[in-house]
Design a protein around this nucleic acid. Structure first.
Length: 474
RNA sequence: GGAGAGGUGGCCGAGUGGUUUAAGGCGAUGGUCUUGAAAACCAUUGUACGGUCUUCCGUACCGCAGGUUCGAAUCCUGUCCUCUCCGCCA
Protein backbone atom coordinates (compact mmCIF):
# COMPACT_ATOMS: atom_id res chain seq x y z
CA UNK A 1 0.00 0.00 0.00
CA UNK A 2 1.14 3.53 -0.67
CA UNK A 3 1.29 6.30 1.91
CA UNK A 4 -1.96 8.25 1.73
CA UNK A 5 -0.08 11.40 2.71
CA UNK A 6 2.15 11.02 -0.35
CA UNK A 7 -0.89 10.78 -2.61
CA UNK A 8 -2.46 13.78 -0.93
CA UNK A 9 0.64 15.95 -1.08
CA UNK A 10 2.05 14.97 -4.48
CA UNK A 11 -0.80 13.52 -6.52
CA UNK A 12 0.67 14.48 -9.90
CA UNK A 13 4.02 12.95 -9.09
CA UNK A 14 2.33 9.74 -7.92
CA UNK A 15 0.33 9.60 -11.13
CA UNK A 16 3.48 10.10 -13.17
CA UNK A 17 5.12 7.21 -11.33
CA UNK A 18 2.09 5.01 -11.88
CA UNK A 19 2.10 5.91 -15.55
CA UNK A 20 5.43 4.12 -15.83
CA UNK A 21 3.59 0.89 -15.07
CA UNK A 22 1.43 1.28 -18.17
CA UNK A 23 -1.60 0.44 -16.09
CA UNK A 24 -4.38 2.73 -17.30
CA UNK A 25 -6.77 1.78 -14.52
CA UNK A 26 -5.02 3.43 -11.59
CA UNK A 27 -5.13 7.18 -12.34
CA UNK A 28 -8.90 7.19 -11.91
CA UNK A 29 -8.46 5.48 -8.55
CA UNK A 30 -6.06 8.20 -7.43
CA UNK A 31 -8.68 10.84 -8.18
CA UNK A 32 -11.26 8.84 -6.28
CA UNK A 33 -8.86 8.48 -3.36
CA UNK A 34 -8.16 12.20 -3.26
CA UNK A 35 -11.87 12.93 -3.16
CA UNK A 36 -12.60 10.38 -0.44
CA UNK A 37 -9.64 11.56 1.62
CA UNK A 38 -10.84 15.14 1.42
CA UNK A 39 -14.37 14.22 2.47
CA UNK A 40 -13.08 12.02 5.25
CA UNK A 41 -10.90 14.70 6.77
CA UNK A 42 -13.54 17.38 6.56
CA UNK A 43 -16.09 15.13 8.21
CA UNK A 44 -13.77 13.87 10.92
CA UNK A 45 -12.63 17.35 11.88
CA UNK A 46 -16.23 18.44 12.23
CA UNK A 47 -17.60 15.52 14.23
CA UNK A 48 -14.54 15.04 16.39
CA UNK A 49 -14.83 18.60 17.63
CA UNK A 50 -18.43 17.98 18.52
CA UNK A 51 -17.62 14.67 20.12
CA UNK A 52 -14.89 16.31 22.15
CA UNK A 53 -17.38 18.75 23.62
CA UNK A 54 -19.83 15.98 24.38
CA UNK A 55 -17.15 13.90 26.09
CA UNK A 56 -16.12 16.79 28.30
CA UNK A 57 -19.72 17.57 29.23
CA UNK A 58 -20.44 13.97 30.12
CA UNK A 59 -17.30 13.68 32.18
CA UNK A 60 -18.02 16.92 33.99
CA UNK A 61 -21.56 15.83 34.74
CA UNK A 62 -20.38 12.53 36.16
CA UNK A 63 -17.84 14.27 38.32
CA UNK A 64 -20.37 16.77 39.58
CA UNK A 65 -22.89 14.09 40.42
CA UNK A 66 -20.35 12.22 42.52
CA UNK A 67 -19.01 15.34 44.25
CA UNK A 68 -19.39 14.90 48.04
CA UNK A 69 -18.32 18.41 48.93
CA UNK A 70 -21.28 20.00 47.22
CA UNK A 71 -24.90 19.78 48.30
CA UNK A 72 -27.67 18.74 45.98
CA UNK A 73 -29.12 22.19 45.74
CA UNK A 74 -25.89 23.72 44.50
CA UNK A 75 -25.47 20.88 42.02
CA UNK A 76 -28.97 21.38 40.71
CA UNK A 77 -28.31 25.05 40.21
CA UNK A 78 -25.19 24.38 38.17
CA UNK A 79 -26.96 21.74 36.11
CA UNK A 80 -29.91 23.99 35.36
CA UNK A 81 -27.61 26.80 34.30
CA UNK A 82 -25.59 24.49 32.07
CA UNK A 83 -28.75 23.11 30.53
CA UNK A 84 -29.93 26.61 29.76
CA UNK A 85 -26.61 27.38 28.12
CA UNK A 86 -26.84 24.24 26.00
CA UNK A 87 -30.30 25.21 24.88
CA UNK A 88 -28.75 28.40 23.51
CA UNK A 89 -26.09 26.23 21.79
CA UNK A 90 -23.51 27.81 24.06
CA UNK A 91 -21.38 24.73 24.66
CA UNK A 92 -18.44 26.68 26.04
CA UNK A 93 -20.56 28.33 28.70
CA UNK A 94 -22.13 25.00 29.69
CA UNK A 95 -18.68 23.48 30.03
CA UNK A 96 -17.41 26.36 32.09
CA UNK A 97 -20.30 25.97 34.50
CA UNK A 98 -20.06 22.20 34.87
CA UNK A 99 -16.30 22.19 35.15
CA UNK A 100 -16.62 24.55 38.08
CA UNK A 101 -15.47 27.89 36.77
CA UNK A 102 -18.58 29.64 37.91
CA UNK A 103 -21.39 28.85 40.29
CA UNK A 104 -24.88 30.19 40.02
CA UNK A 105 -27.97 30.47 42.17
CA UNK A 106 -28.85 27.46 44.24
CA UNK A 107 -32.08 25.74 43.42
CA UNK A 108 -34.01 23.80 46.00
CA UNK A 109 -33.08 20.20 46.74
CA UNK A 110 -36.30 18.73 45.37
CA UNK A 111 -35.26 19.69 41.88
CA UNK A 112 -32.08 17.58 41.93
CA UNK A 113 -33.19 14.64 39.82
CA UNK A 114 -35.28 16.79 37.51
CA UNK A 115 -32.31 19.06 36.89
CA UNK A 116 -30.10 16.18 35.86
CA UNK A 117 -32.82 14.71 33.67
CA UNK A 118 -33.04 18.00 31.84
CA UNK A 119 -29.32 18.05 31.19
CA UNK A 120 -29.33 14.44 30.06
CA UNK A 121 -32.05 15.24 27.57
CA UNK A 122 -29.89 18.03 26.14
CA UNK A 123 -26.90 15.74 25.87
CA UNK A 124 -28.98 13.10 24.18
CA UNK A 125 -30.06 15.63 21.56
CA UNK A 126 -26.46 16.62 21.10
CA UNK A 127 -25.49 13.03 20.32
CA UNK A 128 -27.84 12.74 17.37
CA UNK A 129 -25.64 14.10 14.63
CA UNK A 130 -22.47 12.63 16.07
CA UNK A 131 -23.35 8.96 15.71
CA UNK A 132 -24.49 9.51 12.14
CA UNK A 133 -21.28 11.37 11.42
CA UNK A 134 -19.09 8.54 12.71
CA UNK A 135 -21.09 6.00 10.73
CA UNK A 136 -20.62 8.05 7.58
CA UNK A 137 -16.92 8.45 8.27
CA UNK A 138 -16.61 4.71 8.65
CA UNK A 139 -18.28 4.13 5.29
CA UNK A 140 -16.00 6.61 3.58
CA UNK A 141 -12.95 5.14 5.23
CA UNK A 142 -13.68 1.58 4.19
CA UNK A 143 -14.24 2.77 0.64
CA UNK A 144 -10.95 4.64 0.80
CA UNK A 145 -9.17 1.58 2.14
CA UNK A 146 -10.66 -0.58 -0.62
CA UNK A 147 -9.36 1.83 -3.25
CA UNK A 148 -5.92 2.01 -1.68
CA UNK A 149 -5.57 -1.77 -1.78
CA UNK A 150 -5.78 -1.68 -5.56
CA UNK A 151 -2.97 0.81 -6.13
CA UNK A 152 0.25 -0.93 -7.13
CA UNK A 153 3.67 -0.05 -5.75
CA UNK A 154 5.68 2.70 -7.39
CA UNK A 155 8.82 1.81 -9.38
CA UNK A 156 12.26 2.81 -8.11
CA UNK A 157 14.06 5.50 -10.12
CA UNK A 158 16.61 3.01 -11.39
CA UNK A 159 13.97 0.85 -13.08
CA UNK A 160 14.04 1.09 -16.89
CA UNK A 161 10.78 2.52 -18.18
CA UNK A 162 9.31 0.22 -20.81
CA UNK A 163 5.98 -1.42 -21.20
CA UNK A 164 6.77 -4.92 -22.39
CA UNK A 165 8.59 -7.77 -20.72
CA UNK A 166 10.42 -8.13 -24.04
CA UNK A 167 12.36 -5.02 -23.02
CA UNK A 168 13.66 -6.54 -19.78
CA UNK A 169 17.36 -5.86 -19.67
CA UNK A 170 19.26 -9.12 -19.92
CA UNK A 171 22.69 -9.30 -18.32
CA UNK A 172 25.59 -11.20 -19.81
CA UNK A 173 25.02 -14.94 -19.37
CA UNK A 174 27.24 -16.56 -16.79
CA UNK A 175 28.60 -20.09 -17.12
CA UNK A 176 29.44 -22.30 -20.02
CA UNK A 177 26.89 -23.28 -22.62
CA UNK A 178 27.43 -26.92 -23.28
CA UNK A 179 28.23 -28.14 -26.81
CA UNK A 180 25.98 -31.08 -27.62
CA UNK A 181 27.08 -33.66 -30.17
CA UNK A 182 23.50 -34.88 -30.28
CA UNK A 183 20.09 -33.23 -30.30
CA UNK A 184 19.28 -32.34 -26.65
CA UNK A 185 15.87 -33.57 -25.58
CA UNK A 186 13.25 -31.65 -23.61
CA UNK A 187 12.55 -32.78 -20.03
CA UNK A 188 9.10 -34.05 -20.96
CA UNK A 189 10.83 -36.74 -22.99
CA UNK A 190 13.76 -37.38 -20.64
CA UNK A 191 11.64 -37.53 -17.49
CA UNK A 192 9.22 -40.29 -18.49
CA UNK A 193 11.99 -42.28 -20.20
CA UNK A 194 13.97 -42.39 -16.95
CA UNK A 195 10.91 -42.96 -14.80
CA UNK A 196 11.47 -39.59 -13.08
CA UNK A 197 8.30 -37.81 -14.16
CA UNK A 198 4.92 -39.51 -14.57
CA UNK A 199 2.55 -37.16 -16.35
CA UNK A 200 -0.25 -39.71 -16.80
CA UNK A 201 -0.53 -40.36 -13.07
CA UNK A 202 -0.49 -36.63 -12.39
CA UNK A 203 -3.40 -36.09 -14.74
CA UNK A 204 -5.24 -39.09 -13.31
CA UNK A 205 -4.96 -37.71 -9.80
CA UNK A 206 -5.45 -34.02 -10.35
CA UNK A 207 -5.92 -33.12 -13.99
CA UNK A 208 -4.02 -30.72 -16.16
CA UNK A 209 -0.82 -29.11 -14.82
CA UNK A 210 -0.45 -31.94 -12.30
CA UNK A 211 2.51 -34.30 -12.32
CA UNK A 212 4.07 -37.03 -10.24
CA UNK A 213 7.77 -37.18 -9.52
CA UNK A 214 9.03 -40.70 -9.15
CA UNK A 215 12.26 -42.37 -8.06
CA UNK A 216 15.23 -40.26 -9.06
CA UNK A 217 12.89 -37.39 -9.93
CA UNK A 218 11.49 -37.21 -6.40
CA UNK A 219 14.92 -37.72 -4.85
CA UNK A 220 16.53 -35.08 -7.01
CA UNK A 221 13.90 -32.55 -6.01
CA UNK A 222 14.40 -33.37 -2.35
CA UNK A 223 18.15 -33.02 -2.78
CA UNK A 224 17.70 -29.62 -4.40
CA UNK A 225 15.52 -28.36 -1.57
CA UNK A 226 18.09 -29.41 1.01
CA UNK A 227 20.87 -27.87 -1.04
CA UNK A 228 19.01 -24.58 -1.38
CA UNK A 229 18.19 -24.40 2.31
CA UNK A 230 21.76 -25.18 3.30
CA UNK A 231 23.07 -22.49 0.95
CA UNK A 232 20.77 -19.94 2.51
CA UNK A 233 21.78 -21.00 5.99
CA UNK A 234 25.44 -20.57 5.03
CA UNK A 235 24.53 -17.04 4.01
CA UNK A 236 23.04 -16.29 7.42
CA UNK A 237 19.35 -16.94 6.85
CA UNK A 238 17.27 -18.54 9.59
CA UNK A 239 15.20 -21.47 8.40
CA UNK A 240 11.43 -21.58 8.95
CA UNK A 241 8.70 -24.09 8.37
CA UNK A 242 5.43 -22.12 8.20
CA UNK A 243 1.81 -23.16 7.60
CA UNK A 244 0.87 -23.50 3.94
CA UNK A 245 -2.73 -22.68 4.75
CA UNK A 246 -3.18 -19.18 6.16
CA UNK A 247 -5.85 -16.59 6.92
CA UNK A 248 -6.98 -14.32 4.11
CA UNK A 249 -5.64 -11.29 6.00
CA UNK A 250 -2.13 -12.61 5.42
CA UNK A 251 -2.68 -12.42 1.68
CA UNK A 252 -3.77 -8.82 2.01
CA UNK A 253 -0.63 -8.22 4.05
CA UNK A 254 1.70 -9.53 1.38
CA UNK A 255 -0.41 -7.89 -1.36
CA UNK A 256 -1.75 -10.88 -3.30
CA UNK A 257 -5.26 -9.82 -2.27
CA UNK A 258 -7.49 -8.26 -3.39
CA UNK A 259 -6.10 -8.12 -6.92
CA UNK A 260 -5.09 -11.74 -7.36
CA UNK A 261 -7.74 -13.37 -5.22
CA UNK A 262 -9.01 -15.57 -8.04
CA UNK A 263 -5.58 -17.10 -8.56
CA UNK A 264 -5.35 -18.49 -5.03
CA UNK A 265 -6.86 -21.74 -3.77
CA UNK A 266 -8.64 -21.72 -0.47
CA UNK A 267 -11.51 -22.46 1.82
CA UNK A 268 -13.60 -19.33 1.48
CA UNK A 269 -15.91 -20.48 4.27
CA UNK A 270 -13.07 -20.77 6.75
CA UNK A 271 -11.31 -17.71 5.42
CA UNK A 272 -8.13 -19.72 4.86
CA UNK A 273 -6.06 -20.02 1.72
CA UNK A 274 -3.19 -22.05 0.31
CA UNK A 275 -0.11 -19.89 -0.04
CA UNK A 276 1.00 -19.16 -3.61
CA UNK A 277 4.50 -18.49 -2.22
CA UNK A 278 6.25 -18.74 1.17
CA UNK A 279 6.54 -14.96 0.96
CA UNK A 280 2.98 -14.79 2.26
CA UNK A 281 3.84 -16.65 5.44
CA UNK A 282 7.21 -14.99 5.96
CA UNK A 283 5.92 -11.44 5.53
CA UNK A 284 3.24 -11.95 8.11
CA UNK A 285 5.46 -13.53 10.74
CA UNK A 286 5.96 -9.97 12.00
CA UNK A 287 2.54 -8.60 11.18
CA UNK A 288 1.43 -5.90 13.65
CA UNK A 289 4.83 -5.79 15.27
CA UNK A 290 7.34 -3.09 16.03
CA UNK A 291 10.79 -4.55 15.43
CA UNK A 292 14.04 -3.59 17.16
CA UNK A 293 16.27 -1.64 14.81
CA UNK A 294 19.33 -3.44 16.17
CA UNK A 295 18.04 -6.81 15.00
CA UNK A 296 17.56 -5.66 11.40
CA UNK A 297 18.04 -6.95 8.82
CA UNK A 298 16.21 -10.16 9.60
CA UNK A 299 17.14 -12.84 7.09
CA UNK A 300 14.66 -15.67 6.81
CA UNK A 301 14.38 -18.67 4.54
CA UNK A 302 11.64 -21.24 4.14
CA UNK A 303 10.83 -24.13 1.90
CA UNK A 304 7.13 -24.54 1.19
CA UNK A 305 4.91 -25.94 -1.44
CA UNK A 306 3.24 -23.22 -3.47
CA UNK A 307 -0.21 -23.37 -4.98
CA UNK A 308 -1.38 -21.34 -7.95
CA UNK A 309 -4.44 -21.62 -10.10
CA UNK A 310 -2.61 -20.12 -13.12
CA UNK A 311 -5.94 -18.77 -14.35
CA UNK A 312 -4.22 -15.81 -15.99
CA UNK A 313 -2.01 -18.07 -18.09
CA UNK A 314 -4.59 -20.64 -19.14
CA UNK A 315 -3.39 -22.58 -22.14
CA UNK A 316 0.22 -21.37 -21.85
CA UNK A 317 3.17 -23.65 -21.11
CA UNK A 318 0.90 -26.65 -20.77
CA UNK A 319 3.64 -29.06 -21.71
CA UNK A 320 6.09 -30.40 -19.12
CA UNK A 321 6.50 -29.12 -15.57
CA UNK A 322 7.38 -25.51 -16.23
CA UNK A 323 4.05 -24.08 -15.15
CA UNK A 324 2.13 -26.16 -12.63
CA UNK A 325 -0.49 -25.74 -9.88
CA UNK A 326 1.74 -27.06 -7.14
CA UNK A 327 5.49 -26.65 -6.82
CA UNK A 328 8.29 -26.37 -4.31
CA UNK A 329 10.15 -23.19 -3.61
CA UNK A 330 12.84 -22.09 -1.21
CA UNK A 331 12.26 -18.43 -0.48
CA UNK A 332 14.67 -15.92 1.00
CA UNK A 333 13.10 -13.01 2.84
CA UNK A 334 14.52 -9.87 4.45
CA UNK A 335 13.16 -7.22 6.78
CA UNK A 336 15.48 -4.21 6.53
CA UNK A 337 15.72 -0.53 7.28
CA UNK A 338 14.87 1.72 4.32
CA UNK A 339 18.50 2.83 4.05
CA UNK A 340 19.79 -0.65 3.37
CA UNK A 341 17.09 -2.23 1.30
CA UNK A 342 18.65 -1.69 -2.12
CA UNK A 343 22.03 -2.96 -1.01
CA UNK A 344 20.27 -5.98 0.43
CA UNK A 345 18.48 -6.54 -2.87
CA UNK A 346 21.84 -6.75 -4.65
CA UNK A 347 23.16 -9.11 -1.99
CA UNK A 348 20.14 -11.35 -2.18
CA UNK A 349 20.20 -11.48 -5.96
CA UNK A 350 23.89 -12.40 -5.95
CA UNK A 351 23.14 -15.17 -3.48
CA UNK A 352 20.52 -16.60 -5.81
CA UNK A 353 22.97 -16.38 -8.70
CA UNK A 354 25.64 -18.14 -6.66
CA UNK A 355 23.34 -21.15 -6.33
CA UNK A 356 22.95 -21.30 -10.10
CA UNK A 357 26.72 -21.08 -10.47
CA UNK A 358 27.26 -23.91 -8.00
CA UNK A 359 24.94 -26.09 -10.06
CA UNK A 360 27.08 -25.20 -13.08
CA UNK A 361 24.16 -24.29 -15.28
CA UNK A 362 24.31 -21.20 -17.54
CA UNK A 363 22.17 -18.39 -16.17
CA UNK A 364 21.53 -14.69 -16.69
CA UNK A 365 20.08 -11.86 -14.73
CA UNK A 366 17.21 -9.78 -16.05
CA UNK A 367 16.55 -6.29 -14.83
CA UNK A 368 12.79 -6.03 -14.95
CA UNK A 369 11.27 -3.02 -16.72
CA UNK A 370 8.55 -0.90 -15.15
CA UNK A 371 5.73 -2.42 -17.19
CA UNK A 372 6.63 -5.93 -16.00
CA UNK A 373 7.27 -5.20 -12.33
CA UNK A 374 4.13 -6.75 -11.01
CA UNK A 375 1.94 -5.35 -8.27
CA UNK A 376 4.17 -5.04 -5.25
CA UNK A 377 7.79 -4.64 -6.36
CA UNK A 378 9.64 -1.33 -6.57
CA UNK A 379 12.51 -3.08 -8.25
CA UNK A 380 12.93 -6.63 -9.42
CA UNK A 381 15.55 -8.94 -10.88
CA UNK A 382 14.73 -12.27 -12.42
CA UNK A 383 17.29 -15.03 -12.79
CA UNK A 384 16.91 -17.42 -15.66
CA UNK A 385 18.62 -20.73 -16.36
CA UNK A 386 19.22 -21.92 -19.88
CA UNK A 387 17.33 -25.05 -20.92
CA UNK A 388 18.82 -26.56 -24.06
CA UNK A 389 16.04 -29.14 -24.44
CA UNK A 390 13.11 -26.78 -24.71
CA UNK A 391 15.42 -24.08 -26.00
CA UNK A 392 14.43 -21.29 -23.67
CA UNK A 393 15.46 -19.33 -20.62
CA UNK A 394 13.59 -20.51 -17.52
CA UNK A 395 12.83 -18.14 -14.69
CA UNK A 396 14.14 -19.86 -11.57
CA UNK A 397 14.27 -16.89 -9.23
CA UNK A 398 12.70 -13.50 -8.81
CA UNK A 399 14.20 -11.06 -6.32
CA UNK A 400 12.23 -7.97 -5.33
CA UNK A 401 12.40 -5.02 -3.05
CA UNK A 402 8.85 -4.05 -2.13
CA UNK A 403 10.13 -1.17 0.02
CA UNK A 404 7.36 -0.36 2.52
CA UNK A 405 4.55 -1.65 0.32
CA UNK A 406 3.98 -4.92 2.18
CA UNK A 407 5.17 -3.55 5.51
CA UNK A 408 2.51 -0.86 5.44
CA UNK A 409 -0.20 -3.41 4.72
CA UNK A 410 1.01 -5.83 7.37
CA UNK A 411 1.96 -3.03 9.81
CA UNK A 412 5.57 -4.01 10.32
CA UNK A 413 7.48 -1.11 11.82
CA UNK A 414 10.54 -0.08 13.81
CA UNK A 415 11.82 2.97 15.65
CA UNK A 416 14.58 4.55 13.55
CA UNK A 417 17.60 5.78 15.48
CA UNK A 418 15.95 5.54 18.88
CA UNK A 419 13.23 8.01 17.92
CA UNK A 420 9.70 7.70 19.20
CA UNK A 421 8.14 7.87 15.77
CA UNK A 422 7.55 4.52 14.11
CA UNK A 423 8.53 3.91 10.52
CA UNK A 424 7.75 1.02 8.22
CA UNK A 425 10.53 -1.45 7.47
CA UNK A 426 11.37 -2.49 3.94
CA UNK A 427 10.78 -6.07 2.91
CA UNK A 428 12.51 -8.11 0.21
CA UNK A 429 11.84 -11.51 -1.19
CA UNK A 430 13.76 -13.73 -3.56
CA UNK A 431 13.51 -17.32 -4.65
CA UNK A 432 16.52 -19.37 -3.86
CA UNK A 433 15.38 -21.30 -5.88
CA UNK A 434 12.18 -22.86 -7.27
CA UNK A 435 12.38 -26.56 -7.91
CA UNK A 436 10.43 -27.85 -10.80
CA UNK A 437 12.21 -25.45 -13.09
CA UNK A 438 15.67 -26.13 -11.72
CA UNK A 439 14.83 -29.79 -12.12
CA UNK A 440 14.14 -29.11 -15.80
CA UNK A 441 17.41 -27.23 -16.19
CA UNK A 442 19.44 -30.00 -14.59
CA UNK A 443 17.83 -32.71 -16.69
CA UNK A 444 18.27 -30.85 -19.94
CA UNK A 445 21.77 -29.48 -19.31
CA UNK A 446 23.22 -32.67 -17.89
CA UNK A 447 21.66 -35.17 -20.27
CA UNK A 448 23.86 -37.59 -22.19
CA UNK A 449 23.46 -39.24 -25.56
CA UNK A 450 22.24 -42.48 -23.97
CA UNK A 451 19.43 -40.65 -22.15
CA UNK A 452 21.05 -40.75 -18.70
CA UNK A 453 21.66 -37.63 -16.64
CA UNK A 454 24.85 -36.64 -14.85
CA UNK A 455 24.30 -35.41 -11.29
CA UNK A 456 25.81 -31.94 -10.68
CA UNK A 457 28.77 -32.14 -8.30
CA UNK A 458 27.08 -29.90 -5.76
CA UNK A 459 24.17 -32.32 -5.35
CA UNK A 460 25.97 -35.64 -5.12
CA UNK A 461 26.37 -35.46 -1.36
CA UNK A 462 22.60 -35.17 -1.10
CA UNK A 463 22.06 -38.26 -3.26
CA UNK A 464 24.26 -40.77 -1.53
CA UNK A 465 27.17 -39.93 -3.78
CA UNK A 466 25.36 -40.91 -6.99
CA UNK A 467 26.95 -39.35 -10.08
CA UNK A 468 24.59 -40.54 -12.82
CA UNK A 469 20.84 -40.94 -13.07
CA UNK A 470 19.75 -43.72 -15.37
CA UNK A 471 17.00 -46.27 -15.59
CA UNK A 472 18.51 -48.29 -12.76
CA UNK A 473 16.60 -48.41 -9.51
CA UNK A 474 16.63 -44.99 -7.85
C1' G B 1 -17.08 -33.33 18.84
C1' G B 2 -18.44 -32.22 24.54
C1' A B 3 -17.44 -29.15 28.98
C1' G B 4 -14.97 -25.12 31.17
C1' A B 5 -11.62 -20.78 31.53
C1' G B 6 -9.85 -16.62 29.19
C1' G B 7 -8.42 -12.47 25.38
C1' U B 8 -6.51 -5.17 28.72
C1' G B 9 -0.16 -1.01 26.40
C1' G B 10 6.67 -3.76 24.30
C1' C B 11 5.69 -7.66 28.45
C1' C B 12 3.08 -9.01 33.18
C1' G B 13 -1.24 -7.46 35.45
C1' A B 14 -5.45 -4.42 38.23
C1' G B 15 -9.93 -2.68 36.86
C1' U B 16 -18.39 -4.84 37.67
C1' G B 17 -21.42 2.16 34.53
C1' G B 18 -19.13 8.64 35.77
C1' U B 19 -13.07 11.27 40.75
C1' U B 20 -9.87 5.66 35.29
C1' U B 21 -8.33 10.92 31.41
C1' A B 22 -6.40 2.29 31.93
C1' A B 23 -3.70 1.59 38.64
C1' G B 24 0.73 -1.01 39.77
C1' G B 25 4.96 -3.69 38.22
C1' C B 26 8.71 -5.25 34.56
C1' G B 27 11.42 -3.59 30.53
C1' A B 28 13.31 0.67 27.87
C1' U B 29 15.20 5.82 27.74
C1' G B 30 17.18 10.20 30.26
C1' G B 31 19.08 12.17 34.88
C1' U B 32 21.33 12.10 40.08
C1' C B 33 25.11 9.41 42.61
C1' U B 34 29.92 6.62 41.11
C1' U B 35 36.85 6.39 38.83
C1' G B 36 33.54 3.07 35.89
C1' A B 37 29.63 -0.34 36.51
C1' A B 38 25.82 -2.33 39.54
C1' A B 39 22.32 -0.92 43.15
C1' A B 40 19.28 3.00 44.80
C1' C B 41 16.50 7.33 43.81
C1' C B 42 13.99 10.93 40.31
C1' A B 43 11.73 11.66 35.63
C1' U B 44 9.96 10.09 30.88
C1' U B 45 7.84 6.15 28.23
C1' G B 46 1.37 2.94 23.66
C1' U B 47 -0.62 3.07 18.47
C1' A B 48 -3.31 5.36 14.55
C1' C B 49 -5.80 9.39 12.36
C1' G B 50 -6.84 14.53 12.19
C1' G B 51 -6.22 19.97 13.42
C1' U B 52 -3.15 26.57 11.27
C1' C B 53 1.40 19.19 11.71
C1' U B 54 3.61 22.61 17.55
C1' U B 55 6.72 17.46 21.30
C1' C B 56 0.39 21.84 21.60
C1' C B 57 -4.81 20.19 20.99
C1' G B 58 -8.65 16.71 19.57
C1' U B 59 -10.68 11.86 18.27
C1' A B 60 -10.48 6.62 18.15
C1' C B 61 -8.43 2.05 20.01
C1' C B 62 -8.99 -2.82 26.30
C1' G B 63 -9.68 -9.68 20.40
C1' C B 64 -13.47 -8.27 16.44
C1' A B 65 -18.58 -6.60 15.14
C1' G B 66 -23.15 -4.88 16.71
C1' G B 67 -26.47 -3.19 20.81
C1' U B 68 -28.16 -0.69 25.61
C1' U B 69 -26.92 4.31 27.91
C1' C B 70 -26.46 11.23 28.51
C1' G B 71 -21.87 8.28 29.41
C1' A B 72 -19.13 1.38 28.33
C1' A B 73 -12.65 -1.84 29.28
C1' U B 74 -16.97 -2.56 32.61
C1' C B 75 -23.82 -4.42 30.92
C1' C B 76 -26.27 -7.35 26.53
C1' U B 77 -25.91 -10.15 21.70
C1' G B 78 -23.09 -12.32 17.97
C1' U B 79 -18.38 -13.80 16.31
C1' C B 80 -13.12 -15.09 16.06
C1' C B 81 -9.04 -16.82 18.63
C1' U B 82 -6.15 -19.07 22.72
C1' C B 83 -5.72 -22.36 26.83
C1' U B 84 -7.38 -26.62 30.11
C1' C B 85 -10.00 -31.23 30.71
C1' C B 86 -12.79 -35.27 28.35
C1' G B 87 -13.92 -38.12 23.92
C1' C B 88 -12.33 -39.67 18.97
C1' C B 89 -8.35 -40.35 15.40
C1' A B 90 -3.26 -40.47 13.07
Amino acid sequence: MLDIALIRERPDWVKAQLAKLFDDETPARIDKILELDERRRELRTRIETKQGARNRLNRAMGKLRGNRQMNDGTKSGLVLAATAALKRDDTDRALAILEGESATDAADDDGFQAAFDGLIAELRAMGQGIDDGFAEAKTIESELEAQMLWIPNLPHDSVPVFESEDENVAGVPVGEFREFDFEPKPHWELGPALGMIDFESGVKLAGTRAYVLRGWGARLQRALISFFLDSARDNGYTEFYPPFLVYGEMLYGSAQFPKFKDTVYGLEGEGKFMIPTSEVALTNLHRDEILEEAELPLNYVAHTSCFRSEKASAGRDVRGIKRVHQFEKVEMYKFTTPDNSYDELETMTRQAEAICAQLEIPFRRLEIVSGDLGFSASKKYDIEMWSPGCGEWLEVSSCSNTEAFQARRAKIRYYPGGTRKTQFVHTLNGSGLATPRVLIAIMENYQQADGSIVVPEALRAYLGGASVIDTDQA
